[in-house]
Nucleic acid binder design. Structure first.
Lengths: 235, 235
DNA sequence: ACCTGAACACCGTTCAAGT
DNA sequence: ACCTGAACACCGTTCAAGT
């Protein structure tokens, strides 16, 4: 048995087993997600893709939540930030910017859900925050108001993506949605008079129309809100 | 070996093994959640608690998501709906109502997250929607506006709970939050001038103050928004 | 109709041991 | 310092077989 013969097969069949790096791991994770969906991007499955054991990944990634946050930040590179520098009404441009963020999340609903839990903190997320702040500043919002408004706007967009887009992928989630619409439609006028009176209105409008309305309401709202009390700090 | 001796031990030691019912299953699930947290309310663990096998639960519960939605609806029975009937400014009462909903969610952050994915459709959730609609109607919102506004308000409240309260429980989530605050504080003025300029303002304010501000902005916003275009319907 | 044992196909994370 | 095998302690869901 020569040294040559003991060379592991995998070394010979694969072109090269690249050294593990954080960037390489995240890159492979993004590929895997595009190919099979975020549900498949588990530590074990990803390790398999990288031709190693799951334990090896923990040198570069703290845990699954952090891995997903890193994937999201990578994807946020695709958000179109140009509305922040363009001409035209700042409200329209802010809506376009948030719409672009939403579009990225819509492609990967599970990621939007994880963004609510493990907030991204990478460069691309900061670029997005920066662009929103620039537009709010243009709109004349005072600094403290803008600081709180950016949170409100991004939370609304992220949670809209998390909620709406899950339905389109998971059959189970669709069942829950159907149950809700049925419950609203069949509401007993005695117990739920307002719901019964509104009828189909509660479920009216396309997703886009409701979203655009939501953005308008939010932007008007943060303009109308009083200057925030910024004493104290988030725990 | 007599028939008596072959009686399984569990039958003799436990007072009685109650027959499985949906209500009984959900009730046990709620107890289990209060005792050990929602993470522990798995089909397997719950079956164990009910002294049966996981497969038995599928007769009464479609899947884990539906189980969690049912648990949430049960808990929503604790939401204080009296502000809808009380005297006083309708905005204040709406804020109190949403605050009570938030408080319930805050006690069980994981449940808030699941509510974004599998929306509850039980009686208690309908009661909440009804109460919000009643207050919006008092505030003079046109029916179509109220129909969309209730979604916006509940989505904001639910996602705030999902986001904020996760941090307090999961150590990992706290890490992510720390990473975000550090990233904001250390933003490079060259690339992120607005973030750098705002400095601590971005993270200012207590959770309560930010929440109250958010409710105000939302209420002002839905009042200011134009009548929605209700043609078409949610897919 | 309801209930179940057993199986299928997976998970995250840790840790002692190696290089 | 980096990497790993192996283990620990779990998952959701299905299905054929029983009562």
């Amino acid at each position: 048995m020569t040294a040559h013969a003991r060379e592991p097969r995998s070394r010979r069949e694969r072109p090269a087993k690249p050294a593990l790096t954080r960037a390489g791991i995240i890159g492979t994770a993004v590929e895997l997600m595009r190919a099979e969906g975020l549900e498949r991007v588990t530590m074990r499955r990803l390790a398999q893709e990288l031709d190693t054991g799951p334990a090896s990944l923990y040198v570069y990634v703290r845990n699954t939540a952090e891995l997903h946050a890193a994937i999201l930040d990578q994807l946020l590179g695709a958000v179109d930030l140009t509305p922040a520098q363009a001409d035209g009404d700042w409200r329209d441009r802010l809506t376009r910017l948030l719409g672009s963020y939403l579009a990225v999340l819509f492609e990967h609903p599970a990621l939007a859900r994880s963004a609510l839990v493990a907030r991204p903190s990478g460069e691309h997320y900061l670029d997005l925050v920066e662009a929103v702040l620039a537009l709010l500043g243009e709109g004349g919002l005072a600094p403290a108001g803008a600081a709180w408004a950016v949170d409100l706007l991004l939370l609304f967009t992220t949670s809209t993506a998390a909620e709406q887009s899950t339905r389109r992928q998971a059959a189970d989630a669709q069942d829950e949605w159907d149950a809700l619409t049925a419950a609203l439609r069949e509401a007993a006028p005695a117990r739920h008079p307002h719901i019964a009176a509104l009828g189909g209105l509660l479920l009216s409008g396309t997703g886009e129309a409701r979203l655009a309305w939501g953005f308008q309401a939010l932007i008007s709202g943060v303009l109308a809100a009083p200057a925030p009390d910024t004493s104290g700090s988030t725990p």
